[in-house]
């Protein structure tokens, strides 16, 4: 099996809820990520899926150390990165980079594209100025832009091209892992396909591993090898694409899959639909027992009491549910 790049165990990330103007005090803590495990192997794509507030973006930011981790370990190639500082942290950040949902917000409007892409090299002081420029041009060409774009400004580009620039910026460091936070959700369908194909090509050519954060289950399936479904800071189901999509065992996963509109009118009319009631509860005060039980169509008495752990079957398909659906 290929090398295990990232191994995260029992990761918890919280945000303080403060009160008071002069004397701020913490009155509560929102546990955005509450005990999540994650493995990422070389060259594979792991998708983290869930609705807003499930903690997927916080987890992504924790993985690249943009967000401090409260407890748990995140090992990159066997070394815990949660406490890294200085030179070690910088070395880690060369190998694990990130692309963001909104490529417009991620680019400095007054910086030329070339400079923006080169910035990581400058920060990490990699190569001579000439080598840097060559790497930038190489990265721009890899993402389907040309060297002539080097001197342009972000506003001269369309949304899809901006996302290409964001990818070039992540690529220029020759990373091993790219954490992609909703890379195509701001794009139109036809442009979205371009970017998905590009990510796919890059993975094949460069042997990249992706952590893909997304809410769109179709996008996820197209790119991913394994999926982890999150709900209110927890992993509720994890497995390969086929396991999770074709035989979901957690009622939440089943509901998510059923809720997504199907681009086929005949099937749309006949299929079974599970429509969940209510909204996702506040992570400040998550429900006792299984966090999904208040909305679960299959909840039983014990679900309000016992908090189920993620348990794997022999095939590696994990589910955190007291009464999982039959496989």
């Amino acid at each position: 099996m290929s090398e295990l790049l990232i191994r995260a165990r029992d990761v918890r990330i919280g945000f303080p809820v403060t009160r008071g103007i002069v004397f701020q005090r913490e009155v509560a803590r929102v546990q955005a990520v509450d005990g999540v495990d994650l493995d990422l192997h070389e060259g594979e794509t792991l998708a983290i899926v869930g609705e807003s507030g499930c903690g997927k973006t916080t987890l992504a930011r924790g993985l690249v150390r943009l967000q401090p981790v409260d407890s748990g370990t995140i090992e990159y190639r066997g070394r815990d990165i949660t406490g890294l500082r200085g030179r070690d942290l910088s070395a880690f950040r060369r190998e694990v980079t990130m692309i963001f949902q909104d490529p417009i917000a991620a680019l400095d409007p007054r910086m030329r594209i070339g400079q923006s892409v080169q910035e990581p090299l400058d920060i990490h002081d990699i190569g001579t100025p000439k080598e840097r420029r060559a790497r930038v041009q190489n990265a721009l060409e890899r993402v389907g832009l040309s060297a002539e774009h080097y001197n342009r400004f972000p506003h001269e580009f369309s949304g899809g091209q901006r996302q290409r620039i964001g990818i070039a910026r992540a690529l220029v460091m020759n990373p091993k892992v790219i954490v992609c936070d909703e890379p195509v959700s701001a794009l139109d369908v036809s442009v979205q396909a371009q970017i998905l194909n590009l990510l796919d090509d890059l993975q094949r050519d460069l042997g990249l591993a992706y952590v893909l954060i997304a809410h769109d289950l179709d996008v996820v399936r197209y790119l991913s090898d394994r999926v982890q479904v999150m709900y209110l800071g927890r992993t509720v189901e994890a497995g390969t694409d086929d396991q999770v999509y074709d035989a979901p065992r957690h009622p939440y996963t089943a509901a998510l899959l059923a809720a997504r509109p199907v681009a086929d009118p005949a099937r749309a009319r006949t299929r079974d639909r599970i429509v969940l009631q209510g909204d996702v509860p506040s992570p400040i005060d998550p429900p006792a027992g299984c966090r999904f039980h208040p909305r679960c169509p299959m909840a039983q008495a014990g679900c309000a009491v016992t908090d189920p752990a993620l348990e794997q079957d022999p095939a590696g398909h994990g589910v955190a549910c007291l009464h999982p659906l039959a496989p």
């Binding site: 979205q192 179709d218 694409d241 681009a263």
Partner: peptide, 23 residues
């Protein structure tokens, strides 16, 4: 046709998505 075939939901991993070139 381009809209329909560029939908990722109808593809298996490994199969290329159809893409409409340009903007």
């Amino acid at each position: 046709w381009g809209l329909l075939t560029s939908l990722p939901g109808r593809h298996r991993a490994g199969e290329r998505l159809h893409q409409i070139p340009g903007t």
